[in-house]
Design a protein around this nucleic acid. Structure first.
Lengths: 220, 220
DNA sequence: TGTACATCAGTGAACGCGCGTTCACTGATGTAC
DNA sequence: TGTACATCAGTGAACGCGCGTTCACTGATGTAC
């Protein structure tokens, strides 16, 4: 990891932005492979790219900005996956279930990214160590949370979800439910809480939830 | 924080263990006040106690051991609180609801401790940065999770919980539900997800859950 | 077609910092005679 | 009751490390004349 690996050939004039992309790729790869944010240092990233540390500063003002940029990519990836799942589903309840499981899978596949994005302390300092998030990018329209809101809204319109609930409250509750299983799954020894158990737990919670959300006390 | 503060008077012969307790107290206080594990360095702890850094090593072999000891105290504290809530409650369903809210309050009051105990990556490395937990101390009898199991069991005996559920599955589901709200509450700007909202969300989820757990499809 | 030059991508060395930890020590205090 | 001494609680200085970041620089490359 500290060995110089491959010496990257210098980009040609006007192609300096290539390095920017390579740096982001390396940052993601490092985070994903080590599953440990402490392994993602400026030096380690530079090393993985095959470049020296100061080169990073030609493309990002500081470490914070680098991590923010990498995290934004993850957000976009997650959102696209969820929207894809939702578009394929048969009806809003099915969409909620499917996206819930997809979300869980994504978290389990990207545990450290998940921790950074959804499990770090609020405010400024999180960033040195992880990421500070702009909430308007998190819950606004065109985001993962926005997609959740619209699924629930569709359910309401279709009469599959009881209409006496505040839609935002329901969304927060459903989100915290899925987040609970995901966060538990990646904070424990896989032997203690294996992947199939996580999905089973989510299913059980969804059963309860959709019984509670059903208009006439019917199970979904 | 780097200033020497008060110079602690040396303990008398045979009273060396006093410092051990003071070190643990200072560790907890530092963690609680800063809500940032990075602020809890050997030097900072020593400083808070009014002693030099090497003195710590007379009482703890390394930083890991110090943090483990401090965390064990937190576990004991949480467990005692939950058992107290459970003993006061009127019936098992009420006990589950009350302990759920007490758990949420505890997490919100001790966010960094909660993160260390329930939200760090599994395995060895968590400790340098937080804590590795011995699961037999976490889910065995006489623990917080053990208390949850026994509440559900009481509910089953009393006929207030449907008997066709695997008790362990139900316990994991209930735990991950409460954990979800707690973890969400302490990972976001309090302005975005205030304390009352967290309790309201938990209530909603509990409503769904107890509808699902009720024997005859009745609400709790 | 040849050459001088500005530009641009990236380097090498060093900075100051806080960290966990080690080591040889000091000096107060209880105890044995 | 007095004194020598072993013990014990804690100190002061230093170690090596990895970190983010800065600074003056180098040398290849495209462009203007």
């Amino acid at each position: 990891m500290t060995r110089p690996k491959v010496k990257r050939p210098r980009s040609r004039r006007g192609e300096g932005d290539k390095l920017r992309e390579e740096i982001l790729d390396a940052t993601e790869a490092l985070l994903s492979q080590t599953a440990d944010r402490r392994a993602v240092s400026i030096r380690a990233v530079a090393d993985a790219v095959g470049v020296t540390a100061p080169s990073i500063y030609r493309h990002f003002p500081d470490k914070r900005a680098l991590l923010m940029a990498a995290c934004q990519r993850h957000f976009d990836d997650l959102q696209q996956r969820l929207e894809k799942m939702a578009s394929v589903a048969e009806g809003p309840i099915d969409a909620l279930r499917e996206t819930g499981h997809a979300y869980l899978d994504w978290g389990m596949d990207n545990p450290e990214e998940y921790r950074i994005m959804f499990m770090t302390r609020p405010e400024s300092d999180a960033v040195t160590d992880g990421e500070e998030m702009d909430y308007s990018d998190t819950i606004g329209p065109g985001t993962a949370f926005g997609a959740l809101i619209s699924m629930i809204d569709t359910g309401l319109q279709a009469g599959e979800i009881r209409a006496d609930r505040n839609i935002f409250d329901v969304a927060i509750a459903v989100f915290s439910l899925v987040h609970g299983v995901t966060s538990l799954a990646i904070s424990n020894d896989p032997q203690f809480f294996p992947r199939t158990d996580a999905h089973r737990t989510l299913d059980l919670l969804m059963d309860w939830t959709f019984a509670g959300l059903a208009p006439a006390g019917l199970d979904s």
